[in-house]
C-alpha cells in the first residue's frame, strides 16, 4: 500500500477519531457499570460495530431480553443501514477483496466520509476506502476498551464532546450543499425527517422518515433525472 494512501486515509478519518474514542469510552463505562468487562466490550465493538445499537444493546443484555426481542430491536434501530448500502453499491463496485470488510464496517460516520465517492489524488481509491473504514473501526474498539479499563479517570471534563459526531454530519451536509447545484435531495432529507420527528415523536421517527424520503425521491425521479 502506498504511504500516500495510508496518510490520506488517516487524515480523512481524523474527524471521526475524537468522537469514536469518546463515545466508545462512554460505551465501555456503561458496559462496566452493567457488569460486563473489557472482553465483552471489545467483542461487541468488534463484531456489532454500530454505535447507537450498542448503547441500546447494553439494556438488552442487563434486561435479559429474548433473542427475538434483540433481533427485532436491532432491525428497527439499524434499518437505516439499508439506505447506506443501497447508495454505496456503485461506489464499492470495484473494491474486490476489501469489499466484505468495507460493507461490514459501513457505519453512519464512515458513510458520511465516503458517500460522495471522491478520493484524494495519488491514492489507490479502494485501499483508501478500506483504510478509512479500518481506522474508524480501530478508534471505536480502542475507545470502548479504554473506557472499560480506565473508567472515569480523565483529568478534564469531556462533556459535550459527543457533539463532534453531529458536527461531522453538519459539515458533510454543508459540503454536499456547496458542491451540488441540485438541493432537492438534501432538502427532502432535512424536511422529511423534521416532519416525521414532529408527527411521530423522537422515539419512532426514523423509519417513517426513511419511507417518506424514499417515496418523495421516487416520485421526483423524472424531474431529478431530467436535470442531470
Amino acid at each position: 500500500m502506498k504511504p500516500q494512501t495510508v496518510k490520506q486515509a488517516f487524515l480523512r478519518s481524523v474527524p471521526v477519531m475524537a468522537g469514536y474514542l469518546v463515545l466508545g469510552a462512554g460505551f465501555g463505562i456503561l458496559m462496566r457499570g452493567a457488569g460486563y468487562g473489557a472482553l465483552w466490550t471489545a467483542a461487541m465493538s468488534l463484531f456489532v460495530f454500530a454505535g447507537s445499537m450498542q448503547f441500546v444493546g447494553v439494556g438488552l443484555l442487563t434486561g435479559g431480553a429474548s433473542l427475538l426481542t434483540a433481533a427485532v430491536t436491532t432491525l428497527t434501530v439499524n434499518a437505516r443501514h439499508l439506505f447506506y448500502s443501497v447508495s454505496m453499491i456503485d461506489v464499492y463496485k470495484n473494491a474486490g477483496a476489501y469489499k466484505p470488510y468495507m460493507i461490514f464496517a459501513l457505519t453512519d460516520e464512515t458513510y458520511s466520509l465516503l458517500c460522495d465517492g471522491k478520493t484524494p489524488e495519488n491514492t489507490a481509491p479502494e485501499a483508501f476506502r478500506f483504510l478509512v473504514s479500518l481506522f474508524n473501526h480501530g478508534y471505536w474498539v480502542a475507545g470502548s476498551v479504554l473506557g472499560s479499563l480506565l473508567g472515569a479517570v480523565l483529568p478534564f471534563s469531556t462533556a459535550g464532546i459527543e457533539f463532534s459526531m453531529t458536527a461531522l454530519f453538519i459539515a458533510s451536509f454543508t459540503e454536499q450543499w456547496l458542491s451540488s447545484k441540485d438541493h432537492v435531495p438534501a432538502l427532502t432529507g432535512l424536511t422529511g425527517t423534521l416532519l416525521c420527528l414532529l408527527l411521530s415523536g423522537r422515539e419512532h421517527f426514523l423509519i417513517p422518515a426513511m419511507g417518506l424520503i424514499t417515496l418523495t425521491l421516487t416520485l421526483l425521479r423524472g424531474r431529478e433525472e431530467a436535470k442531470v
Partner: peptide
C-alpha cells in the same frame, strides 16, 4: 440522490 438526503436525516 440518497446521500444528501440521508445526511440531512
Amino acid at each position: 440522490v440518497l446521500p444528501p438526503a440521508v445526511i440531512g436525516m
